[in-house]
Design a protein around this nucleic acid. Sequence first.
DNA 1: TATTGTTATACTCTATAACTATA
DNA 2: TATAGTTATAGAGTATAACAATA
Lengths: 155, 155
Amino acid sequence: MPMFDLASYLPYLVNRVGARLAEAFSGELADLRITLPMWRVMAALCQKAGQRVGELAEVTSIEVSTLSRLLRAMERKELVRRARSLEDARTVLVELTDAGVAMTDRIVPRARLYQDLALSGFTSAESDSLKAMLVRVHGNLGALAAQRSGFERPA
Amino acid sequence: MPMFDLASYLPYLVNRVGARLAEAFSGELADLRITLPMWRVMAALCQKAGQRVGELAEVTSIEVSTLSRLLRAMERKELVRRARSLEDARTVLVELTDAGVAMTDRIVPRARLYQDLALSGFTSAESDSLKAMLVRVHGNLGALAAQRSGFERPA
DNA sequence: TATTGTTATACTCTATAACTATA
DNA sequence: TATAGTTATAGAGTATAACAATA
């Protein structure tokens, strides 16, 4: 029987936390009839107003084809608007509607509160340290993927 | 437009890292015809030999009904074995077959290497600190879920 | 009655590829 | 030709509930 300590295996720890974060916040969004993927899109859009579909896919970690259908559902709920770019007519720019902005405004305080609960007992230095290390790991994995693709990626 | 900084939002950072970890290691497992959920089950089982289905569901963050079908698929591949418990005939104990142990033995070194790549540039103290903080966040979220369920859960 | 696990259903996500339109 | 996005399909996951067996 091979030896392997899950409790010190980073992917396990991250997956576990991610599952709990997702489960808990999904419940938080249920009464607003918003799903977690929708909130991810809204959070990305409220950070930067008009984004291309591919850009959004990268930020939200949602597959482009999945995202395309998700955006259609969000359009039906009048949360977002899609429009062809004037500069490059291949690309589609996505932005929040007024209703989308209003909904995001309702969710953001919950998201903040929720993060505070997840980090309760942490000093602000500890929170910052945790986040910085997650960013470093993300970077390491990105470099890894870039290597495999044969060469460095633009970013 | 609401203000919200994704780059300092913990759920976003965790989701992002989780997505990259999953994507990268899935590729690592592809040539062995093992999926990530299968590996999660195997890793859990190599940590503790015989586990109930519900126990495995908790450890792997996989829904019981999904896990039930996953275990059937793993039985067909002769990686695991299911058997009714003698003590409580309602419960089913899952364990790795010899082939399952052999496969796990092939994967474990890759998993270790893979973790090292994800944590490259980290001192051992930093890695430990990151893991410990993820465990604390997991605990905070568990306490939160327990509260909502009306009262404290056994564990 | 409550619990454990399996099964069924409907819905969503992923992966892949075909397709349209632009560049 | 290459790129951006949409759409279609099949396979797998999730959520829910019904169900069987056992406690």
